[in-house]
Design a protein around this nucleic acid. Structure first.
Lengths: 198, 198
DNA sequence: TGTTAGTATATGATTAATCATATATAAGAT
DNA sequence: ATCTTATATATGATTAATCATATACTAACA
């Protein structure tokens, strides 16, 4: 008899955080705390920000699926560490997931909805909205550049680093597209105002 | 004594779907069915796609907040219609919300995570991933153009239509940014392969 | 004749994500 | 002497969104 696929909830496509964690644990073994502080906050906050609570709960699920295992490291001066490692089943699952196409995520931007319904607002209010959005997008681009400096500064471009670079390029370009559009829109609103005031 | 703000859960920022619906009801009175079929599916699916169940439940919440009212239109050959209209309180809330800046939404793209962890995959598998993503993005751009044709075809550019155009321009440009990046990345992968095969 | 599509509203279940909070110890700062 | 920060894990509560399904009548289609 064939080996049963243990609670193999090869279920629905999502489960993305679980697979991000598998990817990170394939690099090396880590604790939940490591994942949060070294990985999610420092390296992939531009890709997949994750909440501490959700990381811990997802580790539990991954363990009960058999995709990772856990070893407790007793510490006396500090809280014990639960070190997680990926299993063979976990690696197989990751390799499979990495090659599976997923539907595009839905992006809902309240700022675009605001603009869509802004006809009743005075021009100045619209410009103010656009300027606040511009500021937020500038800050986001700056965050991307922080990550760039932290994790892509050294020149030894391994295959892995080339891919990280490719991803970061897109994220930065996406922000630049917003910035260009916002500046164009703000200029257009100002020109409208100047024309009406002359 | 001042008028009490009735269950005025002026709560947390989100509630975005509620405000989208307020915006749509300010244009004209509508039923849940109208909102779903005429608005969310035909006009703003690129901005804020919404599930039928969520629309109906949000209408209930808006009504109990006092931001909309409901009148039942009895029909005999078809199910009755619950027609919703925005109230003065609702208009005030909408105007306030339209001018309030909200934090940028978080965008999580599994395809970018896949690429980030793709170093272990062969080049062909990576190209295949990129090509599938390209196809999906092309389709999304086509959807934007359908909406463009449906709702922005006539030439009388009202203030409202100029804003709708501005929003659609961004959404299309965003997709174009993905397409450009994907084509560049696919070319880069092919060049890598050709170099290694020569 | 049975099936599907259109009109219309409603509920149940589940997932992903966020926020708040709890516990516990040590080191460093005010 | 007190407060904060770092290390480390855990649970409760809530929201936004999605999916499935239920009901009920009409009309067109095969």
């Amino acid at each position: 008899m064939g080996r049963a696929c243990p609670p193999c909830l090869f279920g629905k496509p999502p489960m993305s955080l679980a697979h991000v964690i598998l990817g990170l644990l394939q690099q090396q073994e880590r604790t939940g705390y490591d994942l949060k502080t070294e990985c999610f906050d420092d390296c992939i906050s531009h890709l997949w920000p994750a909440d501490q609570a959700q990381i811990y709960r997802t580790l539990d699920k991954l363990e009960s699926q058999g995709w990772i295992t856990c070893t407790v490291e007793i510490q006396h001066d500090r809280p014990n560490r639960k070190v997680y490692r990926i299993t063979e089943a976990g690696e197989a699952e990751l390799t499979h997931w990495l090659q599976t196409h997923h539907p595009l995520p839905v992006l809902r931007e309240s700022s675009l909805v605001q603009l869509y319904f802004a006809a009743q607002l005075p021009d100045e209010a619209i410009v103010y909205l656009l300027e606040q959005e511009l500021e937020a997008r500038q800050e986001k681009l700056a965050q991307c550049e922080t990550i760039e400096a932290l994790s892509l500064s050294n020149p030894t471009a391994s295959r892995e680093q080339k891919l990280h670079r490719l991803v970061l390029d897109l994220v930065k370009q996406r922000e630049q597209t917003y910035l260009d559009w916002l500046e164009k829109a703000i200029r257009a609103m100002h020109m409208l105002r100047d024309r009406n005031n002359s």
